[in-house]
Amino acid sequence: MAGVLVLALVPFGAVADAWQERADWSEIFRANEASGTLLVVDKRDGTTTTLVHDGERARQRFVPASTFKIPHTLFVLDADVVEDEFQVFPWDGVERDFPQWNADHDLRSGMRLSVVWLYQLFARELGEEREKSYLEAIDYGNADIGDDVENFWLEEDMLEITAEEQIEFLERLYRNELPFDEADQRLVKDLMITAAGSDWILRGKTGWSGKLGWWVGWVERPSGPVFFALNMETPNRMADLPKRQGIVNEALRTIEALPPEA
Rank of each mutant, 00 (worst) to 15 (best):
T47F: 07
T48G: 02
L51H: 01
V52I: 04
V52P: 01
D54C: 00
D54Q: 04
D54G: 02
E56K: 11
R57W: 02
R57K: 07
A58E: 07
R59Q: 12
Q60G: 02
F62R: 11
V63W: 06
T67W: 02
T67A: 04
P71N: 07
P71G: 05
H72I: 06
H72S: 10
F75N: 03
L77W: 10
D78L: 10
A79C: 03
D80T: 11
V81Y: 12
V82K: 08
D84V: 02
E85I: 01
Q87S: 10
W91E: 11
W91K: 06
D92F: 10
D92T: 10
G93W: 14
E95N: 03
E95M: 06
P99Q: 09
N102S: 10
D106N: 15
L107W: 05
R112E: 15
L113Q: 11
S114Y: 07
V116Y: 04
V116E: 00
L118E: 03
Y119R: 05
Q120R: 03
L121C: 00
R124Y: 01
G127M: 09
R130F: 08
R130E: 13
R130N: 06
E131Q: 14
K132T: 15
K132H: 13
Y134S: 03
A137T: 13
A137L: 14
I138E: 13
Y140C: 04
Y140A: 06
Y140F: 13
G141H: 15
G141E: 15
A143L: 08
I145H: 10
G146Q: 02
D148F: 12
V149L: 14
E150S: 15
